[in-house]
């Protein structure tokens, strides 16, 4: 799957909340090769400030060579991107990295927090190609209702059971996503696929270890290239002896392959 660069026309832009938007772009060559959990590097602006491309998970791939990214405004790069309009072109590099691996032997738990839910929709769709909806549980956490209600509908629309919690209790149970995991029956063998803020990932990995469930995590680091060239995206290996690189060895890792600090 070699990386390609495309100037992709924005054909739809949805504002899900004040600071979260979803872009649908025409990127047939990149979309054709994309796997769930892979990412793209997007040029935030034409000029030199902000300079570096920004990494985003591939949120969904749709018929007709369409690719979606779900974007939350954090700083100046995402701010500039969020202002892009239908008809403009996004400079996209991808697909990059190693995505999730899945097979039909497992019961699948998709556990997402906040903007980390982005890659899980694509994953669910792929798993459903060969598996019944009953083999998938979706557990989502967010700060408040507006952050995730569109996404909850998207999963539900695929016939999946979705359990939700919010920190303020505005949707689903009040609490953290690990609270949703704790009472689940011990389906085995099970595979947990998780993406979200680092403290959440660490907590999810902890629950998985207690339940003896296998777990794949999608990690985030600052990246300059996304192409395994700069070596900037290092994270400590589980044996604490050297580093793996998120853009090449990940962003999806077996939870046991990286150190949890």
């Amino acid at each position: 799957m070699p990386a390609l660069q495309q100037k992709a026309e924005i054909i739809r832009s949805e504002k899900l909340t004040d600071d979260i938007c979803r872009f649908t772009v025409q990127a047939p060559d990149i979309a054709a090769d994309s796997r769930p959990g892979q990412f793209v590097m997007v040029r935030a602006a034409e000029g030199m400030d902000p300079l570096l491309r920004r990494p985003f998970s591939i949120h969904q791939v749709r018929d007709g060579g369409l690719l979606q990214i779900l974007l939350k405004v954090i700083g100046k790069g995402t701010q500039a991107l969020s202002k892009m309009q239908v008809g403009q072109h996004m400079d996209i590099l991808g697909p990059l990295g190693r995505g999730f691996t899945y097979n039909s032997k497992h019961h699948h738990y998709l556990v997402g927090g906040g903007i980390g839910i982005a890659p899980l929709l694509f994953l669910a769709k792929q798993i459903l190609k060969k598996n019944e909806p009953s083999t998938i549980n979706v557990l989502l956490g967010a700060r408040a209702k507006d952050e995730i209600c569109t996404l909850v509908d998207d999963f539900a629309g695929m016939g999946l059971e979705v359990k939700v919690c919010t920190e303020d209790g505005s949707l689903g149970k009040q609490g953290l996503v690990t609270d949703l995991m704790a009472p689940l029956p011990d389906e085995n063998p099970a595979m947990v696929y998780t993406c979200g803020p680092y403290p959440m990932l660490r907590a999810v990995v902890g629950v998985c270890r207690d339940k003896n469930w296998a777990c794949q995590v999608s990690l985030e680091t600052i990246m300059a290239c996304g192409l395994a060239a700069c070596l900037g995206c290092a994270v400590l290996r589980a044996d604490m002896n050297g580093y793996v690189h998120v853009c090449k060895d990940g962003p999806v890792f077996n939870a046991d392959d990286v150190a949890w600090l």
Partner: peptide, 9 residues
């Protein structure tokens, strides 16, 4: 190499 964080824009 060095521990992360290794890059800053």
């Amino acid at each position: 190499g060095n521990p992360p964080t290794r890059i800053a824009e």
